[in-house]
Simulated scan of single mutants.
Amino acid sequence: MSAYIALLRAVNVGGTGKLPMTDLKAMCEELGFKSVKTYIASGNVVFLSAKSEPQVKKALEKALEAYAGKPVGVLVRTAAEMTAVGSNNPFSEMPGNKTVAIFLDGPPAANALSTAKNQVSEELRLGTREIYAYYPDGQGTSKLQIPAAKTGTARNMNTVAKLAEMAAAL
């Protein structure tokens, strides 16, 4: 069995995509995932599964679409991958609540950062399957748009660390 972290896209953010974490936990258990734990109400779930990462993603997306009546994006990482995201943070000296990893399904294109719009004080770096962003003035007021991250989902580095810790403990 492998430890996985599933990150749901656009769940319980800004009043859209309402999904109680108790429902998400139950859904994961119905899919046969073990030791299921959710973290904060923004669509983070940690669990064990004998399935491969693509199988986990497909099963969870199918169940979420049946629940929500529309597609819900899911990004999946192993415990080791989530730990690496934290370890490879190029902005590790900056506050964790102002630095995010935007998780993607695959590696970002080499030109992913050059297509960003409205970049003022924000700093961006490419990761393995993520884009790192540092928002010195906070993410809430930023007008930054990253077209390459359109189908991704962001988590701040405090959340990344907690999810890695939870997955490692399974």
Results as ranks from 00 to 15, higher is better:
Pro107Thr: 13
Val100Arg: 03
Gly69Asp: 11
Ala66Lys: 11
Leu113Thr: 14
Leu48Thr: 05
Phe103Asp: 04
Ser52Leu: 10
Gly106Asn: 14
Ala50Gln: 08
Ala50Ile: 05
Pro95Gln: 08
Thr83Phe: 09
Ala59Met: 12
Thr99Pro: 08
Val56Phe: 00
Arg77Phe: 06
Ser87Leu: 15
Ala50Tyr: 10
Leu60His: 09
Ala109Gly: 07
Lys98Pro: 15
Phe91Leu: 05
Pro107Val: 09
Ala110Glu: 15
Val56Thr: 00
Pro90Lys: 03
Asn44Ala: 01
Pro95His: 06
Leu104Ile: 15
Ala63Ile: 08
Ala112Leu: 08
Arg77Met: 11
Asn89Phe: 12
Leu64Gly: 05
Asn88Phe: 10
Thr83Cys: 08
Lys51Phe: 11
Val85Ala: 06
Asn111Thr: 13
Ala68Cys: 13
Ser49Gln: 01
Leu104Ser: 13
Ala109Ile: 04
Glu53Cys: 05
Ser52Gln: 09
Val45Cys: 00
Ala50Asn: 09
Gly73Val: 09
Pro107His: 14
Leu60Phe: 13
Ser52Lys: 01
Glu65Leu: 04
Gly86Met: 09
Ala50His: 08
Gly106Lys: 14
Thr83Asp: 11
Val56Trp: 00
Thr78Asp: 12
Glu61Met: 10
Lys62Ala: 15
Leu75Tyr: 02
Ala79Val: 11
Val100Gln: 09
Val72Leu: 06
Leu113Asn: 11
Ala50Cys: 05
Leu75Glu: 00
Pro108His: 07
Asn111Ser: 11
Phe91Ile: 03
Phe91Ala: 05
Gly96Glu: 08
Val72Asp: 00
Ala110Leu: 10
Asn111Val: 07
Ala79Leu: 03
Ala59Ile: 13
Gln55Asp: 15
Asn44Ile: 01
Asp105Tyr: 13
Ala109Ser: 12
